[in-house]
Amino acid sequence: MKIVNEMNLNFESRSYNESFARSAVSAFVLCLDPTIAELSDIKTAVSEAVTNCIVHAYPDTIGTIYINVRITDQNRIIIKIRDKGVGIENIKQAMEPLYTTSSDERAGLGFAVMQSFTDKVKVRSKVGAGTTVTMEKILYRTSYDKR
C-alpha cells in the first residue's frame, strides 16, 4: 500500500467549523472522482467525528482539531481526526448505538453513523490526553492513476 496524496488540517473547535471541515475533506478527495453517494458518506462521517471533538472532547474550552487525510494507490481514503481533549474512558461502551453522555438533544448515533458510512473505524483514546478516530473508505469505481 502506497500513499499517493496527503493533507493536514488544524482548526479551532468552534461549531461553525463543522461545515468547513467536512467540505474541506470532501474537496480533497474529489481527485478520486467519487460518486455523489460516496462523497455524502464521507462528509457525514467527518461531520460526526468533528462534532464529537467540539461537543465532547473540548466541552468548555476551544481546543485544536487535527485532521489528516491520506489516499493510497488502491483508492483507499484514510481519515484521521484527532483531539487533545478529555478522552474516552470506555471506548466499547461509547461506540454502542444510542449511548450518549450528553444531556442535550443527542441521539448517541455518531459512531454508528461513522461505522455504517465508512468501511472501517478505529478509535484510540486516553483519558485526559485525547482521542483519535481513524476511518477508512474504499472507493470502488475509480482508480487514482487513471486520471
Partner: peptide, 13 residues
C-alpha cells in the same frame, strides 16, 4: 441537502 446525527436528535426532540 445534508444532515448528520444532529438532525436525528432534532427529529427525536
Amino acid at each position: 441537502s445534508f444532515m448528520d446525527s444532529s438532525g436525528i436528535g432534532l427529529i427525536m426532540g
